[in-house]
Amino acid sequence: MWIFVVPAFGLFIGLGIGLAVNVHLPVQYSAYLSVAILAALDTVFGGIRAMLEHKFDERVFLTGFFSNTLLAALLAFIGSWLGIDLTLAAVVAFGVRIFNNLASIRHLLLFRKKIPFHDSSNSC
């Protein structure tokens, strides 16, 4: 029970902090935050899936969350230096992963069984 309530509470606290402190990123950096948010969303769904598969590890989850968000933003930043739009790559890669994770979560909730991660014929 608490595993739902306390993180939800934390989510609202975070939303409140973001709205209250009134931080504004310069326009040129907002694309990196978008990519970071996408990476974070991917990690969160991955975490939910791992919980359902009973192989959740909080160390993997925490390091994954922060390193994924930072690396995604950093990669997009480097890409903008080199003239390669790596935000596009991040959107595609994370988008595919998010939908895979969502499909797995749905299957796990429905049938209590795993589906192979990269088997796209099975994942919808």
């Binding site: 595993i3 609202f12 975070g14 939303l15 973001g18 709205l19 990123l25 907002s30 975490g47 909080e58």
Partner: peptide, 24 residues
């Protein structure tokens, strides 16, 4: 307990990121 803490930390940071982006 560790799971709970991990999820809470992640959700808080995620919420802050989303609301900052929403603001912009």
């Amino acid at each position: 307990k560790r799971k709970l803490i991990a999820w809470t930390v992640v959700c808080t940071v995620f919420g802050a990121m989303m609301s900052i982006q929403y603001h912009d």
